[in-house]
Deep mutational scan, measured.
Amino acid sequence: MSDQEAKPSTEDLGDKKEGEYIKLKVIGQDSSEIHFKVKMTTHLKKLKESYCQRQGVPMNSLRFLFEGQRIADNHTPKELGMEEEDVIEVYQEQTGGHSTV
């Protein structure tokens, strides 16, 4: 019986991991920090939209990076291997420009 009891508790931990929340720091170019608590399985588009709304800027005017890689709207913290207190960097999107060649 103890084996049966242990097995469901392991499964519960697996389920808990799926719905687990982590805190992420979003740091802007001006070094301002906003902290977000997100589920591991939530699409990061929600975090990006919330950040842009707080900053009063359109979402397409900023780019969000985690460990140097651009974050897509459909990425989740779990897919990117994010952990508690990880940092997302935000930069002004640069458009235009010309070749110097």
Rank of each mutant, 00 (worst) to 15 (best):
F36N: 02
F36H: 02
I27L: 15
I71M: 02
S50G: 06
D86W: 01
K23V: 12
T95H: 05
K39D: 02
Q4C: 08
H35D: 09
K16I: 11
I34N: 03
C52H: 05
S32G: 12
E67T: 01
D86H: 04
I27E: 00
T42C: 08
M82W: 03
R63K: 06
K78L: 05
D30Y: 05
S9C: 11
H43Y: 09
R70L: 12
L65H: 14
K78Y: 15
I22C: 15
Q69C: 11
D73P: 01
E18Q: 12
I34K: 03
F64P: 03
E67K: 05
G97T: 05
E49N: 03
D3C: 05
K48Y: 01
Y51E: 03
D86S: 14
T10K: 13
I22A: 03
T95N: 06
T10C: 10
I88K: 02
K23G: 06
F36A: 04
E33H: 02
I34E: 02
S61W: 07
Q92K: 12
M40G: 09
L62Q: 15
L44K: 04
V90C: 12
I22K: 03
I71H: 00
R63E: 07
E85Q: 10
D30H: 07
V87D: 07
K7I: 14
V38M: 15
L44M: 14
K16G: 11
I71Y: 01
L13M: 08
E67H: 03
D30L: 06
K39T: 07
D15A: 12
E20C: 06
C52Q: 04
P58H: 01
Q4A: 11
T42N: 02
K17H: 10
L65D: 01
Q53M: 04
L24F: 04
K17G: 08
S61I: 05
D3K: 09
A6Y: 06
M40P: 12
R70V: 12
L47V: 08
T76H: 00
G96L: 04
K23E: 10
S61N: 03
G68S: 06
E83M: 14
D3E: 09
G68C: 04
L13C: 07
V90N: 02
L62M: 06
P8W: 07
G19V: 13
D3I: 11
K48W: 03
T10V: 14
